[in-house]
């Protein structure tokens, strides 16, 4: 299994699709689990390309928690379907997202257009990834690419950094090679997350909509003003 995450619209789906295209040449059986929040049309993109896909929508739940509560079942499904490589795609909808699992190859997709400060703002999703894929390099200059990659390297010194063009697929062959040599597992039981997930346990988690001190119950943190 491989976890792929990244901010919305960073190019996750394109990168996965282009990488699968490379893997398919070698007759490797692949499936994608797409996690999203409210709705998505991405599973159609995969299905159109003949890629086995399942969709999970978290709705009003924190997408990260929804992910971890379903991931082991997804893994079992993948085994039943005799999938060689199961890829999960989840949008890092808040920068505190933390979908990576220890020992499971993890990829963070992030794009050059998101601004050079962005790597610093993204938390565990980027910091604890094994591979960082940087996209949309064709739209910026060489110097901007270098500054951006340097900023990524600063927050995640261990990761392999790959530049991939999501439109032409240039660079996807390299990623597919890394996917091929990713480790195999029989089960996700007893595996651990790389970092804790964002937490909240307050009245608003349970559907409260009223504003005011009287309604603040549970795990509440106050700003220093």
């Amino acid at each position: 299994m491989i976890t792929v995450s990244g901010p919305p619209s960073s190019g996750k789906t394109s990168i996965i699709e282009k990488t699968i295209k490379e893997l398919k040449k070698k007759e490797i059986e692949i499936a994608v689990i797409k996690f999203d929040c409210l709705s998505t049309a991405d599973e159609m993109i995969y299905q159109k390309k003949g890629i086995k896909t399942k969709l999970g929508l978290s709705g009003s739940l924190c997408p990260d928690h929804y992910f971890v509560n379903n991931i082991d079942a997804c893994f079992r499904w993948g085994r039943q379907e005799n999938v060689d490589i199961l890829i999960t795609e989840s949008a890092g909808l808040c920068n505190r997202c933390s979908p990576h699992i220890k020992e499971v190859l993890s990829v963070c997709v992030i794009d050059n257009l998101s601004g050079y400060h962005t790597p610093k703002k993204i938390g565990p999703m980027l910091k604890f990834a094994d591979i960082v894929v940087i996209t949309k390099g064709d739209i910026v200059s060489q110097a901007e690419r270098e500054v951006f990659a340097y900023n990524v390297k600063k927050v995640n010194p261990h990761a392999k950094i790959l530049h991939i063009n999501g439109i032409t697929g240039q660079g996807a062959a390299q990623l597919s090679k890394l996917f091929e040599i990713a480790e195999d597992y029989d089960s996700l039981d007893e595996k651990k997350l790389r970092f804790t997930m964002p937490a909240a346990l307050c009245s608003y988690c349970l559907g409260e909509t009223m504003i005011g001190k009287d309604y603040h119950i549970g795990n509440v943190k106050n700003m220093n003003l």
Binding site: N112, G115, D138, I139, V140, S141, E144, E146, V147, I161
Partner: peptide, 18 residues
Amino acid sequence: MDEKLISQLSQNMNFVMD
């Protein structure tokens, strides 16, 4: 990334960096 062999001057004519 320190040893990239190719730097590229592509067709884009604008910077996006703020």
